[in-house]
Design a binder for these strands. Structure first.
Lengths: 199, 199
DNA sequence: GCTTCCATGTAATAGGTTACATGATTTG
DNA sequence: CAAATCATGTAACCTATTACATGGAAGC
């Protein structure tokens, strides 16, 4: 079983019992939020199947003033299945960025639009950042700690790059440096003062 | 038209004529490789449809000792369509990382496995890095430059984080620091010496 | 009074992947 | 001699997304 929605649910349930609704919220805002996602309409069927297969159990909780809730718990068989999934090799990361696609064609767009695009981007990253910081408040395991830290490192690098290099695509209009235009060329990277890696 | 395979092809063809085969290679190794991907079986049908719609034209080139080649060129209508797609708002990034999912459950795995996982990860990132460096050799536009630089910044941050924090999930066995175990806790982030963002 | 939150689910559709099918040439 | 590269395409499948359907309670 590869990393499909079912395995994601199994993983989340191995840490805490939850309903489908809570799982989705967790995927959207919790400690997985920066590298995984799943919608309601994939989670609910997944939970049904997991129950059928005996990997989770479900207990219906009647609530007042609120719809009934189905709380799922992982079973021993479920833990075994999760462990098995974890014994394989993880597939390579998939990163799909429309923002970067857009930026590839910066010369086709006007400077205003590009600025707005970058501003929005910075906002978005900052929001995700906030999610991570919240999730860090309730860290339960070292693994989660490591993973959240990873997300933070990436987002910090991302923000730094955007701040320092946005002038490249915005044209020289708002450029912070006023030296020879032809020298403003290649982007600034953190590595400039860092040791080499690989090769 | 959202960012589907058709738009990706249109984007790539706006920079250079290419065959389906070459497009796939370009998506896999070129300047889009770190944030997009597409397989042959999605590219070929996409090109057929684009041709039907008049957004690209196709010229068959007979080759010796090699299968015939269908080289596609973008039309003016195609450029308009691309521009239109670029006038909307980009969807949020999607990042799917099985590696991080695995790491979330580091306590369920043994230290050896985790070390191997991280070693492999570092190798993979280094390989992608090499792709980017190659792609940087043949940069045509400022947009591409910006986008490749972005990829480099992220990968550098990623490698740095892995080197500096792998001991957290590997247990203290191979920890580079030998101070009080309870202090070895929270991950080191690049931001430690950097200005704050947001908020 | 409107929007958001809680809460679960189905149906239709779109989108992509895997495997299949073929085959000559170059590189190791 | 085997493997990888060049080159295009189809069929079956799987998975997930969008839209739909429902409805009370709490907050603004």
């Amino acid at each position: 079983m590869a990393l499909d929605v079912r395995t994601m649910c199994l993983g989340a349930l191995s840490k805490e019992d939850a309903s489908g609704y809570e799982l989705q919220k967790n995927f959207k805002e919790g400690s997985f939020s920066h590298f995984l996602e799943a919608s309601y309409s994939s989670i609910y069927p997944a939970l049904t199947r997991l129950t059928e297969e005996g990997l989770v159990t479900c207990s219906e909780q009647v609530q007042e003033g609120r719809p009934d809730k189905k709380v799922y718990s992982i079973t021993d068989a479920g833990r075994d299945t999760l462990k098995e999934a974890l014994s394989g090799l993880p597939a390579e990361d998939k990163h799909r960025s429309e923002f970067l696609f857009f930026m590839s064609f910066s010369e086709v767009m006007d400077a205003d639009q590009i600025s707005r695009l970058i501003d929005t981007r910075i906002e978005t990253v900052n929001e995700k950042f906030a999610h991570i910081k919240e999730a860090e408040q309730e860290i339960q395991t070292i693994g989660q700690d490591f993973v959240l830290g990873y997300g933070r490192a990436i987002m910090e690098a991302s923000l730094k790059y955007l701040r320092e290099n946005r002038h490249l695509v915005e044209g020289d209009l708002a450029a912070p440096v006023r030296t020879n235009k032809k020298n403003g060329g290649s982007p600034i990277n953190a590595s400039a003062n860092t040791t080499n890696h690989g090769q």
